[in-house]
């Protein structure tokens, strides 16, 4: 279509920047995507930047007072704000520190220079500003990113699935890992990845976060039967969903 290109900015907060790299590595799709969008702000891939944009994609979670200030500035500049990846969408791996004392963590990381590094409890972007849509996953699945972009460019606000990974796992014809005693998080984890990990025999890490009304009591029983200790179960649950669990408790 010949419509005006959508002006897009990419912004990184606290995260590994893997989401942005995952996007840059969509080599086959990028030329076609760039027919429709113009990237005006992307630290990872350009030096000239603009704040005049239609959409902001946010990667990384909110962890410092400076993050809060910056995300508010982006929100004011961007008519549409989309979170990209687990950290910005659900808090992500950074949320493993949920439930621990912040001063203790600052001491552990920065030592006696900790007073130079103010810190906040880890938050997904939606805890600070309004989020219009989200791309889940650590990292986001390129197919899912393409699905999001095409729907978005067609004028829809794309919705992520609310059902668990099992649906996509069974579409692939996979035998259930959890039934085989392998502690797979797929039963409580939001789909959309196409059962990326379990289709390769690797249990789901839960990187897309919990489905609404996830049956965590049943999950604990299943994981115990897999031979996991309470601590190991907690660790698995908190790996990506620390923030969501905090909300539930």
């Amino acid at each position: 279509m010949t419509a005006k290109k959508v002006r897009v900015g990419f912004f990184d907060f606290t995260g590994c920047e893997g989401c942005q790299l995952a996007k840059v590595s969509m080599e086959n799709e990028l030329p076609q995507i760039l027919e429709h969008i113009e990237i005006v702000n992307f630290r990872e891939a350009m030096s000239e930047k603009s704040w005049d944009m239609d959409v902001a994609f946010i990667e990384g979670s909110i962890t410092t007072p400076a993050c809060v200030e910056r995300i508010n500035r982006i929100r004011q500049a961007a008519p549409i704000l989309v979170t990209l990846g687990a950290c910005s969408t659900i808090g992500g791996i950074n949320a493993i520190r949920v439930g621990r004392d912040l001063d203790e963590i600052r001491q552990e990381v920065y030592g006696d220079k900790r007073y130079l590094f103010p810190s906040l409890p880890v938050m997904p972007v939606s805890a600070v500003v309004k989020v219009d849509a989200s791309i889940y996953g650590c990292p986001p699945n390129p197919k899912d990113v393409a699905r999001f972009l095409t729907q978005f460019l067609a004028g829809k606000i794309p919705q992520a699935p609310k059902y668990p990974v099992c649906i996509e796992c069974k579409l692939q014809g996979n035998a259930c890992l959890l039934v085989q005693g392998i502690p797979c998080m797929g039963v409580v984890t939001r789909a959309g990845c196409g059962a990326w990990c379990p289709s390769k025999g690797q249990f789901c890490y839960g990187c897309r976060g919990l489905i609404p009304d996830a049956n965590l009591d049943a999950l604990r029983i299943s994981f115990e039967e897999c031979g996991l200790s309470q601590q190991e179960i907690d660790n698995k649950l908190h790996l990506f969903s620390g923030r969501e669990l905090e909300k539930l408790s």
Partner: peptide
Amino acid sequence: AKRCFSCGSCTMV
């Protein structure tokens, strides 16, 4: 329902 994950595997297979 207490133990059901609502995962859908039963109907998918």
